[in-house]
Amino acid sequence: MVSTKHTLVALVEDKPGVLNRMVSLFRRRNFNIESIAVGSSEMSNFSRITFVVDGSPTMVEQVRKQLMGKVVEVVKVTDITDKNIVIRELALIKIKAPSSARSEIIQIVDIFHAEIVDVTQEYLTIEITGPEDKIESLLDLLKPFGIKELARTGRIAMTCGTLVDEE
């Protein structure tokens, strides 16, 4: 079976140790988690987690069932890979920006609808939001200037329209 990237969205109780239990299940199946993003959901006391994992459809389905059935605090896990979804990620990029390069960098930032959130004599810090490929493209263009520091949130995702991930 071909290994492909899957986006799983989980609704879980907001209790200590839940993330540990879930991640431990991935580890036991020898799954590499590419990214994981956790935050509150529309309901108090419940969190929504977005996992991106690599694996064959049967392996991912097995992990999905294990998460649902074996981790008591997990309410629902959906593989939304093949659905019509909105994907977003946020990245903060600190880049070397001597005065000679500054205007070129600002042009690139504008083209990507990114934002400069901090400026010093030597460095600019850029914030960009979007699907991963957009962030990758920006990084490719900025690399020649020298990336000092990079932080990415990992993917969050949601199904489009009236669909909710529980369906």
Binding site: T58, E61, Q62, K65, Q66, M68, G69, K70
Partner: peptide
């Protein structure tokens, strides 16, 4: 009773 056993 355990859905994770089906097709494992």
């Amino acid at each position: 009773i355990d859905p994770a056993e089906i097709g494992k």
